[in-house]
């Protein structure tokens, strides 16, 4: 008689499971090319709204007024950066928050939970998928937007801007885990996520510098990693000015978020998940 012995998954196994989840999601989204095309269009249209309003109301003074208020006359790039970082941030929230609901709706949640792989490993795969999808579409949308509005997309310190973007992604996904926990708890949460998406866009200064906000709101905004991420990208590309005067101090703050936010997010998520599994069950929807 052969006995089967359980061996806990090694790091290699976990990595393989994580990458399989990423691949599954990428294959899934590749079946919806229309949705991907929309992701290129949305940030451009979104940035075009204030741009067209500003051009129509301020006329020839649009660039000068914008420079006086934000620190750069290049309002096209400024607004496009804001709109694209916003799509990355909201993408992170939706993709992570809806991981469980996606599995619930496709009827695969129970199968996932009886495998020896832990849910944080699978969510890490979803994070990787989300980062590839959101960052890829945001960069392409930025380039297309710059071409449409005839501004040079390759200006400023591109390497530094990308560094701010990629470092900022990690604490961002840490926060997304917390939203994932909220969705687990309240289930049908589309409106709450919509609201959070707009709250985030307001706090990170999607179309304006957070310095225009009242001091208390500004303080809250600066506790939020995407605020540092978007300002870092704008400062690197357009020279609008770092919060702490130099790029390495702003980057240090982002690194502090990077060390804290993911651990805290995973802790909140696993705790919520554990509570739900111990009470009414996670499969209820």
């Amino acid at each position: 008689m052969t006995t089967i012995q359980y061996t806990p998954p090694t790091f290699r196994h976990k990595l393989s499971a994580m990458l399989a989840e990423t691949r599954l999601r990428l294959i899934n989204i590749s079946r919806y090319p229309g949705q991907l095309v929309m992701e290129f269009i949305i940030p451009i249209v979104f940035a075009a709204m204030p741009m067209l309003l500003g051009q129509a109301t301020a006329g020839d003074q649009a660039a000068a007024n914008f420079a006086a208020n934000t620190g750069t006359a290049n309002y096209v790039a400024y607004l496009l950066i804001g709109a694209n970082v916003f799509t990355i941030v909201s993408g992170a929230f939706w993709h992570i928050a809806y991981w469980v609901r996606f599995e619930q709706e496709t009827g695969t949640l129970e199968a996932v939970y009886i495998t020896p792989t832990s849910s944080p490993v699978l969510i890490a795969g979803v994070c990787l998928y989300s980062a590839i999808r959101s960052t890829g579409t945001a960069v392409i949308a930025f380039l297309i937007g710059c071409l449409i509005f005839r501004v040079n997309p390759f200006q400023g310190d591109i390497i530094l801007a990308l560094l701010f973007l990629f470092v900022g992604l990690i604490p961002l996904y840490g926060i997304a885990f917390i939203f994932g926990a909220v969705v687990l708890k309240i289930k049908e949460s589309q409106s709450v996520l919509n609201l959070m998406q707009w709250l985030v866009s307001f706090l990170m200064g999607i179309f304006f510098p957070v310095t225009v906000l009242p001091p208390f709101v500004r303080f809250i905004a600066q506790l939020f990693p995407p605020t540092w991420m978007v300002n870092g990208v704008r400062s690197a590309l357009l020279g609008v000015g770092f919060f702490l005067e130099t790029w390495y101090l702003d980057m240090a703050v982002l690194w502090a978020f990077l060390l804290f936010a993911p651990l805290f997010g995973i802790w909140v998520f696993t705790r919520t998940e554990g509570n739900l599994r111990g009470n009414q069950g996670i499969g209820q929807f």
């Binding site: 309003l53 500003g54 109301t57 301020a58 007024n65 914008f66 208020n69 999607i206 179309f207 304006f208």
Partner: peptide, 8 residues
């Protein structure tokens, strides 16, 4: 707020 960024 975005619109006001274009105001003097």
């Amino acid at each position: 707020l975005a619109g006001l960024m274009f105001a003097p």
